[in-house]
Amino acid sequence: MKNLILSTAALALTAGVAMADTVRLGTEGAYPPYNFINDAGEVDGFERELGDELCKRASLTCEWVTNDWDSIITNLQSSNYDAIIAGMSITEEREATMDFTQGYTRPSPSAYAAMSADIDVNKAVVAAQTGTIQSSHVATTGATLVEFTTPDETIAAVNGGEVDAVMADKDFLAPFVAETDLTFVSEVFLGGGIGMAFRESDDELRGKFDAAIASMKADGTLNDLLDKWEIEGKF
């Protein structure tokens, strides 16, 4: 299930390194500001710029591949790409099957957004995308969980009055709150920041990216990127 096509923007780097390994980076392409498909039909967003910079620092040639969220982990494990860089929060369950780099965002808040601020998120009808940490969280509260297959449908549902609120990463909701009638109701911290995921057997590659992330944290370039894409939290 490689989701192929798109964005073959292989970064031909550091001339002279002829045998540079090609590292395939898997992303979803439907989760702005982290990753999305821009007007030109290419992978774009915070993670696109971050990934390209990391590859440059680690002297690797990288290729971007998009894959459906549902099967994004299975396809990593069956080696159809080498890393997931798709706004994936570091959680215990995921740690059990994959290895993450250090987080490249601060533990990011998930937020409830609704048409009116005076709803009780523990009693309301709340929409979330199927198979996300947010849908798992809502299932544990007293709220009525309504699951949609794509994040866009959750937004459409709250706009259409089908549900009282939507729960997703705050950064994903922020532009909708800024430009439409939605308002934030409350926040919850779920997961431990966002990191790149690798197969457990791929420690060497993970080490390279981990070091590159650390160097970006050290020289402040990561903060600049976070600023540019208006993602909360700094290092």
Binding site: N3, I5, A30, F36, G45, T150, I155, P175, E179, E230
Partner: peptide, 21 residues
């Protein structure tokens, strides 16, 4: 894993904010 017409129709049709397009 083939990006077919439904995939693109879904992506293109979804509401877009001015920040990303």
């Amino acid at each position: 894993g083939v990006e077919d017409i439904v995939y693109w129709a879904r992506d293109l049709g979804a509401s877009k904010t001015a920040r990303f397009t």
